[in-house]
Design a protein around this nucleic acid. Structure first.
Ligand SMILES: Nc1ncnc2c1ncn2[C@@H]1O[C@H](COP(=O)(O)OP(=O)(O)OP(=O)(O)O)[C@@H](O)[C@H]1O
Length: 674
DNA sequence: CGTTAGAGGATTTTT
DNA sequence: TCCTCTAACG
């Protein structure tokens, strides 16, 4: 039997209420995720539901993995068979099983944003579309929202506006080319899986039969396709439990719609509502600050949230002349805190930023201060160009119709095939309605290709064919190692990289990649090429978080969603940065404020806010004001706020910091000998 | 014809 | 600052 005494009464109610629709609406740190985990364990142990009938959807793979571990801890190895996954991972899994019904070949590949952008640029160029001033990035955003709203290219073709028609052209070709490549993008995952379930009752029944208890975490950030997905999976039993907090809706820019959470009782009549009001994470001081900030939002469902953790340190404010100094002070404060109290771990500290590029000054400051850190976000390992190219080879191994990857593989190492030859081959494709790989295979039939180029293409095709065979018969890591050797990949990398430092980095990245393949083979349930490619496509920055290593964590506020840390720093608390100037211009201030609420409520014990008075961007110097969110925090919870104005407190804190930083510098110059 | 060096522009947040 | 596109070189 699972012991439910580790839960408070409403939590227990939510866990025991297993049948029918259930909505858990509650503020930050009230144990929503914990309830889902216990609910899974309760269903397994007390209700004897077989694990394969359980489905829990989380926001990131990392959260899924963590829940899986907690569940295993509570319920033992039987938990392994429960499905805990993100919407996208679940979607891909279903699509692999049902590819034909979904209208794709089973070896489809997944295009990430980088691939999508390349494709958009290519189409714009090929078709000489003139989107005056609009970037590929913006166009891709429009494609994505068109897809999510179910708009077909034809709807644009018939619009009177010339630009709309142009977009219709781009959109139509984007769809055609991804399909011809047997490739799907992130939007397609949800689009295809919902269409599949809608149009194939027997498939739908199969999954409804399989998943009998459904749970969704972070339901406030669900979009309409995800909502459709979950309702399609939901059988007649209607055993759906969702948890969420409308104050933590921070993805509306990506199509998420918090109304889906708020209208749950309308969507599922007879739903039970449970509210959780005790926060177990933060001190009263921190919670008071968070509540005060979020109260400024007008569109929200007011809710109670209290903490029994009385008192607690008041919030500190650090100010600096510029971003680098700000980062230096943050790094210095962490180092100092750790020196003063060696029991504290580096990994107890998290620095949250609004945008990825704010991570850079932090990284540099941490390096200079000898502060161990891990970055979440920025460019992840698999995004590095030398790794992307290798992955392009792997994608071609799996699916030679993937033109984008084929071209990327063809392009490096250099083999004497350039734009002109490629153009000829493309023309040949269009004449015969072939795909690019077929044109490669028949290169000798294509006129006007120089003999050197022809020979190079044939060698390339042989390479691909040979390795496609090897990848079918050999272990993934083995075959990839051979591929790297055969293409003299490392040598080519070295020759192509002028800078000695980055040359070294690239080579070691490739070695690391080969190592990661071996680790993948040893640990994965599906240690195949397909399994690896899916994992790489679905992995996200937050999945890299490693709580076992003792390092301070630098990450975006978005990536911090659902996490908690004893000591939290909010970096760059300036108007224009946070709230971002874009949000201020477009009137999206409430979502920024929710983000601030999320950020503040990550802190368990201490919270520090930092801001600069100036910053440089693209060589221009900008004067900065402290964030309006700082003004929204009552002076009483700011350090010395009772006697000083926030400005005075900031001033004094700045002076103290000055001393600390100077001291630290001296210490460092002295090689840390006192 | 293919490759490379350097100018010029940009992405807020991400599954 | 990183990344893509262009122009000149070999
Ligand atoms: N009944 C309880 N007793 C003790 N600790 C609890 C209890 N419920 C939750 N906690 C603790 O409170 C913290 C927050 O829980 P959890 O992450 O589940 O909250 P949440 O509502 O999902 O938070 P958020 O919405 O901010 O992501 C965790 O450390 C958890 O272990």
């Amino acid at each position: 039997m699972l012991d439910l005494t580790a839960l408070n009464p409403p939590q227990r109610q939510a866990v025991s209420h297993t049948e029918g629709p259930l909505l858990i609406l509650a503020g930050a740190g009230s144990g929503k995720t914990r309830v889902i985990t216990y609910r899974l364990a309760h269903l397994l142990l007390n209700k004897k539901v077989p694990a394969q009938h359980l489905l829990a959807v989380t926001f990131t793979n990392k959260a899924a993995q963590e829940m899986q571990e907690r569940l295993k801890h509570l319920a033992g190895p039987a938990a392994q068979k429960a499905t805990i996954s993100t919407f996208h991972s679940l979607g891909v899994r279903i699509l692999r099983q049902q590819a034909a019904a979904a209208g794709y070949r089973r070896n489809f590949v997944i295009y990430d944003q980088h691939d999508q952008l390349t494709l958009v640029r290519e189409i714009v160029k090929d078709r000489a579309l003139d989107f005056a001033g609009h970037t590929a990035f913006e166009l891709l955003g429009r494609i994505s929202s068109a897809k999510n709203q179910g708009e077909s290219p034809e709807t644009f073709a018939n619009k009177p506006n010339a630009e709309e028609m142009l977009f219709g052209d781009l959109y139509a070709h984007y769809l055609e080319r991804t399909r011809n490549c047997n490739a799907i993008d992130f939007d397609d995952i949800l689009l295809l899986v919902t269409n599949l379930l809608e149009q194939h009752p027997e498939v739908r029944r199969h999954y409804q039969e399989r998943y009998r208890y459904l749970m969704v975490d972070e339901y406030q950030d669900t979009n309409s396709l995800q909502y459709r997905f979950i309702t399609l999976l939901l059988g007649e039993h209607r055993n759906l439990c969702v948890v969420g907090d409308d104050d933590q809706a921070i993805y509306s820019w990506r199509g998420a719609n918090p109304e889906i959470l708020l209208r749950f009782e309308e969507h599922f009549p007879g739903a039970r509502l449970v509210k959780l009001e005790q926060n177990y994470r933060s001190t009263q001081v921190i919670l008071h600050a968070a509540n005060a900030v979020i109260k400024n939002n007008r569109r929200r469902k007011a809710k109670e949230l209290w903490s029994a953790l009385s008192g607690g340190a008041r919030l500190r404010i650090l100010t600096a002349e510029n971003e680098n100094e700000e980062a230096e002070k943050v790094a210095g404060t962490i180092t100092m805190r750790k020196l003063l109290d060696p029991k504290v771990r580096f990994s107890d500290f998290a620095v949250l930023v609004r945008t990825n590029f704010q991570l850079r000054p932090l990284e540099e400051a941490a390096r200079n201060a000898n502060l161990p850190y891990q970055l979440i976000g920025g460019t992840s390992f698999y995004e590095r160009p030398e790794i992307r190219t290798l992955i392009a080879y792997l994608k071609v191994m799996r699916n030679p119709d993937d033109e984008l990857s084929l071209k990327r593989a063809l392009d490096f190492p250099k083999r004497g095939i350039g734009a002109t030859t490629l153009l000829r081959l493309h023309q040949y494709c269009q004449q015969h309605n072939y795909n690019l790989y077929r044109a490669f295979q028949e290169a000798q039939q294509v006129g006007e290709v120089r003999s050197a180029a022809l020979h190079a293409i044939q060698t390339f095709v042989h390479l691909i064919e040979d390795f496609r065979r090897r990848f079918r018969h050999e272990k993934l890591s083995q075959a990839t190692q051979e591929l790297v050797a055969q293409t003299a990949y490392l040598k080519a990398l070295e020759e192509a990289t002028a800078d000695a430092k980055s040359r070294e980095v690239k080579v070691s990245n490739v070695r690391e990649f080969l190592g990661s393949l071996q680790r993948f083979e040893q640990t994965s349930e599906d240690p195949t090429l397909a399994g690896f490619l899916d994992r790489v496509s679905l992995i996200s920055d937050s999945d890299y978080l490693n709580e076992k290593v003792d390092r301070a964590i630098f990450l975006t506020m978005h990536a911090a969603k659902g996490l908690e840390f004893p000591y939290v720093f909010l970096f760059g608390m300036n108007d224009g940065q946070f709230p971002s100037s874009r949000a201020l211009e477009s009137g999206a201030i409430e979502e920024e404020r929710r983000l601030c609420y999320v950020a503040i409520t990550r802190a368990q014990r201490e919270l520090t806010l930092s801001y600069s008075t100036r910053k440089t961007r693209y060589k221009e110097v900008l004067e900065l004001q402290p964030s309006r969110f700082i003004q929204e925090i009552p002076a009483a919870v700011l350090e010395n706020g009772g006697t000083e104005s926030p400005e005075q407190a900031a001033q004094r804190a700045a002076e103290e910091q000055e001393d600390l930083v100077t001291m630290l510098r001296r210490l460092r110059e002295n090689n840390f000998k006192v």
